[in-house]
């Protein structure tokens, strides 16, 4: 593959949009091409810079209620105070015609509930699938050409402030050398549209990437799966979502996950 073609594919590669054969082609080219490596690093840095710097504009507080009121679907007795525009909307709704409304309602009653269930489940499933692939890509990417660590240190007191300087959250960082999981360093990565912390642990000859980001979902148990020859172990604890990826065995990752989990549990209690 020539550089021109490869440069076109680096963006989709970093975005996790290439299938595995295409991604491997890009990686093979990157290994021997300093110019493309540089382009790759720049795009990666740009993504992290945008993810950490650009605001996510959330709807103002109370805006959802304003919308409901405006649409005439306010939950409480808001219907008595409908504004002119929502009345207009109501009359448009009548204008749909009786039969189409009946049809819509009937169709909805019959399939709505179960379909919604299936859709929600499928969406979750596909979101989870995409996320798992992204995590595996991020791990595989980190194993290429010195891309593994941004901060090299076995000292948790160096790694933690390094992260809190660059992210809007501070992951709990601890060395587990005594349990045969020495801390190697840290890296900023980019998963699911946001900048995340990646803690790097060693175990025998294996490298383990631990991706961490804040999550408002409650604590969840440790789950394990294999994907494209990698092990993926995940859990949530103390407001953080943890995702361990490595070519080490699932049992090994679960062992480290238990260490991380109990550390996260004690550090969130002590805060």
């Amino acid at each position: 593959m020539n550089c021109e073609r490869n440069l076109e594919l680096i963006g989709p590669y970093v975005d996790g949009e290439l299938d595995l054969p295409a991604a491997l082609d890009v990686e093979r080219h990157l290994e021997n091409c300093p110019a493309c490596q540089q382009a790759h690093r720049r795009i990666h840095r740009l993504k992290v810079t945008v993810a950490t710097g650009a605001p996510y504009y959330k709807a103002p507080v109370g805006f959802a209620d304003e919308i409901r009121k405006h649409l005439g679907i306010a939950k409480e007795s808001g219907s008595s105070e409908e504004s002119g525009s929502s009345l207009k909307l109501q009359s448009r709704r009548e204008g749909w015609g009786f039969s189409s409304r009946i049809l819509a309602i009937a169709a909805m009653l019959i399939v709505g509930v179960c379909l919604a269930g299936i859709i929600v489940w499928q969406n979750h499933k596909s979101v989870d699938d995409a996320m798992s692939h992204e995590l595996v890509y991020a791990h595989a990417r980190s194993m290429q050409f010195d891309h593994l660590m941004d901060v090299v240190s076995t000292d948790q007191h160096t790694v933690k402030p390094w992260f809190s300087d660059k992210l809007d959250f501070a992951p709990p960082v601890r060395d587990f050398a005594v349990a045969d999981f020495p801390l190697k360093g840290g890296r900023l990565d980019y998963i699911g549209g946001r900048a995340v912390a990646a803690l790097i642990y060693g175990h025998k000859k294996h490298v383990i990437n631990c991706f961490v980001w804040p999550s408002d979902q409650g604590d969840s148990p440790i789950t394990a799966m294999g994907l494209q020859g990698y092990s993926l172990v995940q859990f949530s604890q103390g407001g953080m979502s943890w995702h361990l990826v490595s070519d080490a065995s699932l049992e090994t990752l679960e062992e480290l996950a238990r260490e991380l989990r109990s550390n996260a549990a004690t550090s969130s209690v002590s805060k």
Partner: peptide, 12 residues
Amino acid sequence: IVVLREIEGLSY
């Protein structure tokens, strides 16, 4: 495109 990809995290 940038907002949908980099901030909203959507696929191509």
